[in-house]
């Protein structure tokens, strides 16, 4: 089953995301911010990255940019979870290399459906 790196500084969101994904059979690893995520992503190769945007230490957009620069993550789907439905943040994320986004609030079903989209 596909492996997913779930990045969020909020424990409840992180738990919700990882619980949902695990329940659906994905292999999930959690990271608490961009720095943590980058470390974990370098330690092993994930099939997909789901990240929050606003985080301390390293935000989600920078994380995506950093990951895209790694050969292993050139084509890996990366989704950002954002409360900002504004076009600006999305563009910024896209420019950094995000595959797509999910606008919070979302429920577990939406999350799974979106992941199914990118992971098939």
């Amino acid at each position: 089953m596909a492996s997913i790196l779930a990045v969020d500084d909020s424990a409840s969101m992180r738990k919700m995301v990882s619980f949902t994904l695990r329940a659906a059979g994905y292999d999930v690893e959690e990271a608490v911010d961009g720095v943590d995520a980058l470390e974990k992503a370098q330690a092993r190769r994930f099939d997909c990255v789901v990240t929050d945007v606003n985080m301390p230490n390293k935000d989600g957009i920078t994380l995506i940019r950093d990951l895209r620069a790694l050969p292993d993550y050139k084509f890996i789907p990366m989704l950002m979870l954002t409360t900002e439905s504004g076009i600006e943040k999305k563009q910024e994320g896209k420019a950094a290399g995000a595959t797509g986004w999910m606008v919070k609030p979302f429920n577990p079903d939406q999350l799974l459906k979106t992941l199914l989209k990118v992971l098939g």
Partner: peptide, 11 residues
């Protein structure tokens, strides 16, 4: 921001 995101998600 986090509170907003979480509270939206949890209804």
């Amino acid at each position: 921001h986090s509170i907003k995101g979480g509270s939206g998600t949890f209804g």
